[in-house]
Amino acid sequence: MSDSKSEPALSITGTTKTFGSKVAVDHVSFDLYPGEVFGFLGPNGAGKTTIIKMIMGFVRPDEGTIIINGYNRHTDYEKAMASIGGIVENPEMYNNLSARLNLKMYARLHDGVTKERIDEVLELVGLTERADEAVKKYSLGMKQRIGLAQALLHRPKVLILDEPTNGLDPAGIHLLRDILKRCAHEDGVAVMVSSHLLGEMQLMCDRIGIINHGKLLQICTTEELMKQAKKSNSYRIKTSDPKRAQDILSENSKYPVSNLSSDTLDVEVDESEINACVRLLVEKGSDILGVQKIESSLEEAFLEITGGGIDIE
């Protein structure tokens, strides 16, 4: 869980990046604390990857500071980067080399990564048996796993994963979720995950930052976001004549109706008033075949925050 009293593992302040005339990242600031899983949510082209690339040293920010584990990434590059691990976009390895050799080479660039540690992370991601095969024979899911192994190899304080569930099978996703949670909650690693798979984020993250058009729109805990989402709960009412039911409800502006189908209609109504709403329909002679609560998700909250989600694929 986030602990605002501890020092942030990653601190980003006023980071801005412009490509030509397009502002890709616009004064983004946020902190990432040890022991939390932070979800970075935004539609494609929102600037998620650019921010991650700035943190990981691919892209130089035009403005702003990035502090990793207390080291300024600009002035103390190697020390700052020693505490970070991650995957940017798809993990890419040297395809003609084995996974083990890839890890061995990566380990050379860090201090204190032992041979045993390599075996350990291979075991962790479940690749021990195929570790000596050339990476080019791997499936995308396996590449994700080896990418994760590489990211975890040097026991980073900050772990940044860009779209980590891409190409993973359900078992892989489950494993990833377990590993990330264990890293954060047991080892105190600050984990940051970017994704547009909202359900996944809901299950994985403690805090979520929402970004669109290069601007960080909101940061809140997953619970807060869920609460925000629950405010606009709706119910699906099954009836033989939805049109008539709509007419009845339209007379009462308290119950906005949407998604009319041949035998259902959705009503936006709070839990406390659904009883009154159903009673109104019954009183006016509409037959009720069923009432079902539509579980609202992050998705809708997200669409709302990002302004209709025009950019969502």
Binding site: G85, Y106, Q150, A151
Partner: peptide
Amino acid sequence: TGSIKSLIIAPV
């Protein structure tokens, strides 16, 4: 091929 990533991510 993108393999440059594992160099860029490294603390060098």
